[in-house]
């Protein structure tokens, strides 16, 4: 570590469990951020500021005026620019130590395995459930840890997967019909809530890389910003999980697995 780096990271080097050894670990770590949006903006800022050596950014969109209310990494003059590129320019100014790798193609069933392959930790900061399931399945199948973050209006949830722990599919089964779950463009989202959840995900990534603390594994944290109530839901592996259960039916990302979602016609009372 250079003298400048010692000063730059001094406040976290001071922390028990970090130190110079931990900082060296961060500097040699590779994290992939999928989605440079409301969750991804604070995530990228904190990971880069903390000196995560390489940050991959997967995002295929261009910045829109309506993004700026919550995507605090960007500024008004970035409107129209590809977000991954605009993010790299901003993040390099924040911390020139950090390498930024851009993945400008949309993450799909075809490319997800090769996209995540070279990273130590994956962060799901995407806005749609089908990609969340895709990331989960790819990470489970390739034994990669990842952090999940989700937002809905004034609420958010986060969980962390490491091989052997409950995965996103253990908890949520299979994606609901597309129309059933609203997106932030339909029902809105408070930027500060995205910031809270993105910061939680950044802390999880850093804890994993440093090997400290207790991760959000086998539990889901939910946070309601209107009441400021937090809930920790204990979860466990689902033996019937389609991707990590004992009779798994998903063998490559993008497969639907066994879908058993149905709303019964009659309701017993």
């Amino acid at each position: 570590m250079t003298e400048e780096q010692t000063v730059r990271y001094s406040r976290q080097i001071l922390l028990e469990g970090v130190g110079r050894v931990g900082q060296e670990k961060l500097l040699s770590s590779r994290v992939l951020l999928i989605g440079a949006g409301g969750l991804g903006a604070p995530l990228a800022l904190y990971l880069v500021a903390a000196g995560v050596g390489t940050l991959g950014i997967a995002d295929s969109e261009r910045l829109d005026l309506s993004n700026l209310q919550r995507q605090v990494l960007f500024t008004t003059d970035d409107i129209g620019r590809p977000k991954a590129e605009a993010a790299r320019a901003k993040l390099k100014r924040l911390n020139p130590d950090v390498e930024i790798e851009i993945h400008s193609e949309r993450v799909t069933a075809e490319n997800v395995m090769t996209t995540i392959r070279d990273y130590h930790f994956i962060v799901d900061a995407t806005d749609n459930l089908s990609t969340k399931f895709l990331i989960n399945d790819a990470c489970v199948l390739s034994a990669r840890p990842f952090s999940h973050g989700g937002l809905l209006r004034f609420e958010g949830q986060a969980m962390t997967y490491v091989p052997g722990a409950a995965c996103y599919r253990c908890i949520h089964g299979s994606p609901p019909p597309k129309a059933a779950v609203p997106s932030s463009s339909e029902v809105g989202v408070l930027g500060a809530v995205a910031g809270m959840l993105g910061s939680i995900q950044a802390a999880e990534a850093l804890k994993y890389l440093l090997g400290i603390g207790d991760l959000l594994t086998n539990r889901v944290l939910t946070l309601n910003a209107l009441t400021m109530e937090q809930r920790m839901v204990r979860t466990k592996r689902n033996l019937h999980c389609a991707v990590c259960g004992s009779h798994r039916s998903i063998r490559s990302p993008g497969e639907r697995g066994q879908v058993g979602r149905r709303w019964p016609d009659t309701r017993s009372t």
């Binding site: 969750l39 799901d124 459930l129 990609t131 609420e155 958010g156 908890i171 994606p175 839901v233």
Partner: peptide
């Protein structure tokens, strides 16, 4: 009983 909503949010990726 624990009820967990599906939450998307974030960005397309």
């Amino acid at each position: 009983v624990e009820i967990l909503y599906f939450m998307s949010g974030g960005e397309r990726g």
